[in-house]
Design a protein around this nucleic acid. Sequence first.
DNA 1: CCAAAAGTGTTCATTCTACACCCATGT
DNA 2: ACATGGGTGTAGAATGAACACTTTTGG
Lengths: 250, 250
Amino acid sequence: MNKYNHPGVPYFQHVSEHCIHYMSIDGVIFGFSENQLKVLLLRWKGTDEWSLPGGFIYKLESVDAAAGRIVQERTGLNQLYLKQFHVFGDANRYDQADTWQRTKMPLEGIKWSERTISIGYYALVNYSKVTPMPDLITDECRWWNIQDLPRLLFDHNHIIEVALHSLRRELNEQPLNHLLPDPFTIPELQRLHECILGTALDSRNFYKKMLASGQLERLPERRSGTSHKAPYLYRFQETQSGEILPEPGT
Amino acid sequence: MNKYNHPGVPYFQHVSEHCIHYMSIDGVIFGFSENQLKVLLLRWKGTDEWSLPGGFIYKLESVDAAAGRIVQERTGLNQLYLKQFHVFGDANRYDQADTWQRTKMPLEGIKWSERTISIGYYALVNYSKVTPMPDLITDECRWWNIQDLPRLLFDHNHIIEVALHSLRRELNEQPLNHLLPDPFTIPELQRLHECILGTALDSRNFYKKMLASGQLERLPERRSGTSHKAPYLYRFQETQSGEILPEPGT
DNA sequence: CCAAAAGTGTTCATTCTACACCCATGT
DNA sequence: ACATGGGTGTAGAATGAACACTTTTGG
């Protein structure tokens, strides 16, 4: 692949014409599987370099809608929980020469603005319902364990860190069920909390706290198949909002 | 003032040439005086319509720097505490026709993008050190009590609400001393907490909590001049950072 | 002396933390 | 039967809310 047929060039031409310049959206898509918190990453065409999924905002598109679109395209999900968590607006967020050289993109085709302000969103998705799909300029889309990430393009390692810290801070207000199978067990919920917090929790205290919250509904069935006592299945009570963010009427 | 000599026209021409399109910054500048939480508002030239101070980001300017510049220009302060709290990105954040008509700005001079994404920052400033200054397109800049605001231009009533909610949620992590005289008394700090939270607090419990936090340093002097017992003066211990926001190196 | 607000102390309830123990299941 | 992890209970510590009381100041 040489600079004249790289698919990024027409893509960035399209973006340059229809999207807002100097702005982008980066999505930290959290999933949970095998007791590990994971994020979805993309490998750029013809390279071993990975980045977060991202995209641009159409001139008349709501920012939330753009974030939703971007995450949908990589996951195949049509319903998801998204939260805007930070704007990365430093004039020198990352070393541009270095990063663009690593992407092997033909520079003249893609440097359509001298710098980019990125709005960070995190998504909480059900790992098993996601079909990871690369985009036009990437070869591969897959999950990575959050504590085992490679060095990413741009400032994306930093963005993931900030996303995780935000999630950690907001843990108790977030609908974590989006990250779990439906229904789920309390031990599964505990593993998830532990992954997000990065600490071990006492299962007995965790139980009491969760049950006392009154938000959980115990189902009659249990999860069987393990070599020990079958745990009960739970569901969050229907107080949770499926969607995002406060925004006014006019 | 007719449409041909409105100072907004050259201003927006300047902005259109040098700033990032489709983006703005709005600043919710909080102050505290006479036991009231206040915000700084601007009255648009030749109207009775008020809005938040705002502005635009130069193409190579850091977003935090832009926010700092905008707040400085209205307050005269060269050191201030700023916090990015939300991006308002709805494609139809407000009724554009209605708002621009209320501003009495000549539309053809100023509608340089069909919609605007606004990054909201709040600032905590020392009321007595602020010199409110209007900008090119406003006649007047002054403090308003937060629970006594007029109907503002754009979606600024909503933005202030979200700012206040953010501040309320982050109360305990924020350096509230920026809103108070230096040094201050515990009762003053309590009034401030009460204004932000919108509830009354028990002064005796508040005392214990503040002293137990270990962040306060009692000075030998007291605040005298009132017709009752003179309260001690306090200062926050020097653990507070004067400035803003996490952002990476490259 | 009195009113008003500062500042200290005590009590009770609630929540958090540590840990003992029993239960169910597959091997 | 036993190892493994699910699920319940109980006690002490820490935190938080309610309220009694003394102190200082100007008038």
